[in-house]
Amino acid sequence: MLLEHYISELLYRYNCVMVPGLGAFLTQMKSAVIHKTTNAFYPPSKAISFNEQVVTNDGLLVSYMADAEKTSYEEMLAKVTDATAEWKSRLQKGEKLVLENIGELKLNDAGKIRFQPHHNINYLTSSFGLSSFVSVPVNREVLKEEVEAIEEKIPFVFTPEKRKTRSLRPYLKYAAVGLLAISLGLTGYRFINDGLGNQQLAIEEAQEQVTKRIQEATFFDVEPLELSAISLDVLTPKAKIIKKKNLPTHHIVAGAFRFRENANKKIRQLKRRGYNSTYIGTNRHGLHMVNYESYTDVDKALKALKAVKRSQSKDAWLLSVK
């Protein structure tokens, strides 16, 4: 008969398991704990304690054991009394009493029973399946208040002026020229080895690749791009002009494209992301411009620009038209 085995089973169901002649094992709900130093997480559990002052037999342990071993209550009470008497005798001799999955009992210098619980089993049934673990610290980027204050003061202009921020995208044109030069150099090498016919083929392939890259590129000039006055014509099915509507004043520019079809492709992409993107015309360089949104209220436009620069593209900028 393993008395501690039955005590352990009852600790799952009850907050107090009294052992006749020895004392009572008590449990108390303990909340989840996160250790800040080790980043260890401990789930909710039951904390076990022992009170040797509670010695009155409540019949719970004896009845449970009698039912489990198919014997009478009186016979089981006698067995439990003998077992606890043996435990107390061992404690009096200075031995340490180790109860599996429960804890350790030992007498202190004052002759009182000292209990040290084990933590290998969680007796809280609602935390079944939850084990302790150590988490890797999560480093979060904190946006400084100084940066936010600067972003709140982003200037918008009615006339073109130099932008303070610079982008790597304007250098795409130079990279294309460099690619063409490299291609020409490789073509010269082929000409020596393969003849004039292979050289001409290599040049055409290189030019085709460079042209494709430039056509699909989004251009952000170093200064805001000027727009001429633009109006939209709303047509009926019979192609009669019924109304003219001016575009809003402030545009959050998403890019400028050499070909209109690339601008339309960009508009479809932005609409799928939830933006009310539109085509806002061509600039003085003949590039087709596309916006994220348009606003008549400048405060709303600045707020929206701030959100776009954070979540979509740092190259977005505000174009204001009188």
Rank of each mutant, 00 (worst) to 15 (best):
F219Y: 15
T236N: 09
V253W: 01
K212Q: 13
K271H: 10
I214P: 01
F257H: 03
F220S: 05
D233I: 11
P224Y: 01
T218D: 13
P248A: 13
I280K: 00
R213C: 12
F257K: 04
A217E: 07
H250M: 04
D233W: 07
S277Y: 04
T211I: 07
E226R: 00
S231E: 13
V222A: 12
K245W: 06
K238L: 15
A263T: 05
P237L: 14
T249S: 05
L247I: 04
S231D: 11
K271D: 09
K244D: 12
I280Q: 01
P237F: 13
D221Y: 07
I214W: 03
Q215H: 09
N276Y: 13
S277G: 03
L235K: 11
K244A: 10
L270V: 07
P248F: 02
A254H: 02
S228A: 13
S231T: 14
A256L: 04
P224W: 02
R268T: 09
A256F: 02
K240G: 06
I214Q: 03
V253S: 02
I242R: 12
K238Q: 13
Y275P: 02
A229I: 13
I242E: 14
N246E: 15
L227W: 01
T278S: 05
Q215N: 12
F257I: 05
K243R: 15
V234N: 10
E223I: 11
F219W: 10
S231I: 13
K244T: 15
Y275V: 05
K271A: 11
A256N: 04
P237W: 11
K245R: 14
Q207K: 08
T236D: 11
S228F: 05
K244F: 06
Y279N: 03
E261F: 07
R258N: 13
R268K: 11
A254P: 00
E208M: 08
P224A: 06
Q207M: 11
I252M: 00
Q209C: 08
N276C: 06
K271E: 15
H250E: 06
P224K: 02
A217I: 05
V210R: 00
F257R: 01
I214Y: 04
I241A: 10
F257S: 03
I267R: 00
F259C: 06
S228L: 08
N276T: 06
L235C: 05
F219H: 09
E216P: 00
N262A: 14
A254V: 02
I214T: 03
T236V: 07
T236W: 03
A239S: 15
I241D: 13
E226C: 01
K271I: 15
L270W: 05
